[in-house]
Design a protein around this nucleic acid. Sequence first.
DNA 1: TCGCCAAATAATGTCGACAAATATACGAGC
DNA 2: GCTCGTATATTTGTCGACATTATTTGGCGA
Lengths: 281, 281
Amino acid sequence: MGADMEGGTSLNRPDFEQADAWIATAPSSQSESFLNAVLVIRRIVAEHHDRPSLVSRVACEVGAEIVENIRQSGEDLSSVELAERYETSRTPIREALLLLEKEGLVRIPQRRRPHVAVLDIAEAREIYRVRAVLFGAVASDAARLRTDADLESLREQLARLSAAHDAHDLSAYLWANVEFYNRLTMAAYNNTAKRILDSLLLRTLRLRRLSLTQPTRRERSMAHHVQLLAAIEEQDAPLADVLIRSNHLHALAALEQLYADGGVPLPMRSRRRRRQAAAAA
Amino acid sequence: MGADMEGGTSLNRPDFEQADAWIATAPSSQSESFLNAVLVIRRIVAEHHDRPSLVSRVACEVGAEIVENIRQSGEDLSSVELAERYETSRTPIREALLLLEKEGLVRIPQRRRPHVAVLDIAEAREIYRVRAVLFGAVASDAARLRTDADLESLREQLARLSAAHDAHDLSAYLWANVEFYNRLTMAAYNNTAKRILDSLLLRTLRLRRLSLTQPTRRERSMAHHVQLLAAIEEQDAPLADVLIRSNHLHALAALEQLYADGGVPLPMRSRRRRRQAAAAA
DNA sequence: TCGCCAAATAATGTCGACAAATATACGAGC
DNA sequence: GCTCGTATATTTGTCGACATTATTTGGCGA
């Protein structure tokens, strides 16, 4: 999806330049990253909506916009605006927003406009703590239960991760990372845990790109993945557990740093962008 | 399972005798247990719906019926039926069902009737494993972070638990147990973890009563709580961790036993109860 | 000029209706 | 008698409309 023309209305995704700031190297990978976001979100939020229903389409797209920081934290998500934009009634929009609320990307207060959920450092801390513990258990299980096919799948993904790392392609690295964790959780054969981890991942995905901006963080992350896969190959469950927990705590520390330095662009106090009287279809 | 009488309309809560089978001693605590279920569900599913909105009312009541095994596993939850029963349109019903789906009590396949989620042993196993790990971390945190007020609250609740145990009141014991865990998770000051644990608890609440039917299980559970509180009082985080994990694994073992013995009344293959033309208002 | 209160505006929650899709009942064929 | 295909009957997904409730605009007073 390229430039959203129709220059006047504020309905289009704004400030692409801002998004640019996070894409370190490959400028053309913007839309590709967005597509990745849509795919991941579809996997997580619309897993049961097998067929491309209306609500799943809206949920995926809006969710991707949030994850890609096209919609800023706290920004209003008026159901009528979205209904106009997707040329549908408000009922499916409402349901899509409910799906996104379930994943923690959107908040829907009673009788108030839904808005993009804000992720303060306290909540991020909580999420990372939970993820660390759960991921530890999952990695531990994966180390014990993984099949050869799982192992092969993980190796393959690690190669992609490494390639993205070498190419200094931040966006590619990010999504390869997500997919690596996806395969890892699958290897533990615990769908309940996977669901929870996926949901928690989604919540912090907005910050992930920020955190990986730091080169030292990326180095550490890459090294970590190599170690982790080795531990799983050797079926060293305790080591896998400790490794992944440690990595999460480091990632959290990096995030705390970013928040402390004001590197997180989040404020935006819920003032609604004025709707222009938009023309026809 | 008991007689599915289908006397007049099948819209009312049926087979109270069936519920009776699980209430070991106090026959009058039936409705009280239902009320407890409603309260707990309101706390969990409708936490943001502060004001008593329509959807929260429906969600709480239907959810309570599921948890109390008044609605059987797999039973259809037609939105028109519910709309009739609550004298409202289908829109709020739909949203209420979505809320319950989010908590795993209901499944809503596309273009098919929603139905009470079935909880097979595999999923129960997954849930208990996740809960064990997460609860371990939470208990660990609680041991370190608990304030004196938290401690007092836990002691008080343990007393109630003990009283219910001495009175052989299964239902009271069950709900006191739920509240004890609620206070415990609060003492860890991690709302994300609490939310997840609450949701997982809700999913297994239906089975909990079954599991506690076994007297030895109740003895063990009671003893466990005493030990756990002691560990938290002494700020022995590792001990709290191990204790709660161990308890969960024992509970799971009891469940496996029940499933193996066919003690779980769950089957019911989604055939819809025939609607009778119900009369006026 | 700034802050508080009231009218006006816009958004949400709910409703009843309709089209598409599914589940049920009925009847034919073996 | 039982299984399979077809017609009927519900049911879901979506829509546009309305009442109620927030939000914003505009006015008044200090």
